[in-house]
């Protein structure tokens, strides 16, 4: 192990952390916004409402993220129509391609988590709301979604960590995230073990931070549960 290499290039690695965190936050946000309607559609009984989201979720959960990134980045750019569309200024940027692929991917996983949470809400609560004269949208807003969010929190935290790990693939489309930075440094120093291990430790710390944040949020959202256990 050559520790001087680590010391020398650590600041460079930290530069990559910024990009990694940004990728996770932005695509996490977009992914969640997409997941809400998708999850609700999957929860509904009407087959016509369920079918399309099902196909979407099936595709994104059934194929590797790496394939999805390449399809968005290299695949789309192959078509004249895409290159001449109004979206091209975004699609030509690797940053936005990564955001698109990550958002679509995490939306599919989060939607399934949301569906599971919605399914787990006791029927009685929904019936009570119906008796009170609440309509469907209001029931979702007031009863089902808040309950579901609290239930899905631990699973959602795991999903964010999985996305943090998935974000390493951004390096394959020229982005200089933590992994991309590590690979570029290794291209100079030829010390893969030292640099990859350092990057690994940084990822580990980032996931510890995510776990920690979710624990705090969970305590706030589900205070009644912690009281019950105590």
């Amino acid at each position: 192990m050559d520790y001087s290499v680590i010391a020398q290039y650590f600041p460079k690695l930290l530069e990559g952390v910024g990009t990694t965190v940004e990728l996770v936050l932005v695509s996490g946000l977009i992914g969640t916004l997409l997941a809400i309607p998708l999850g609700i559609a999957r929860h509904e009984k009407n087959i016509w409402i369920r079918a399309l989201p099902y196909a979407y979720i099936f595709f994104f959960r059934g194929t590797p993220l790496l394939v999805q990134i390449f399809l968005v980045y290299y695949g789309m750019a192959q078509f004249e129509a895409v290159r001449e569309s109004a979206l091209w200024p975004y699609l030509r940027e690797p940053y936005w391609c990564a955001i698109i692929a990550f958002s679509l991917n995490t939306a599919a996983y989060s939607a399934e988590i949301l569906r599971g949470a919605l399914d787990s809400i006791p029927k009685g609560e929904v019936e009570a709301a119906q008796v009170l004269g609440m309509r469907k949208p209001l029931i979702y807003r007031r009863i089902k979604l808040p309950r579901a969010f609290a239930v899905m929190l631990p699973a959602y935290g795991n999903e964010i960590i999985l996305m943090l790990k998935g974000s390493a693939l951004a390096s394959t489309i020229t982005l200089l995230d933590l992994t991309g930075m590590a690979r570029t440094i290794i291209a100079r120093t030829y010390t893969p073990i030292e640099i990859f291990l350092s990057a690994g430790v940084i990822y580990l710390l980032l996931s510890v931070v995510i776990i920690w944040v979710f624990r705090i949020v969970e305590k706030r959202l589900n205070p009644q549960q912690s009281v019950k256990i105590a």
Binding site: Y74, A77, Q78, R83, R92
Partner: peptide, 14 residues
């Protein structure tokens, strides 16, 4: 990662 990818992006106009 490889030169083929450079050509792909050159052609894509990136």
């Amino acid at each position: 990662d490889n030169n083929d990818a450079v050509y792909l992006d050159l052609k894509a106009g990136r």
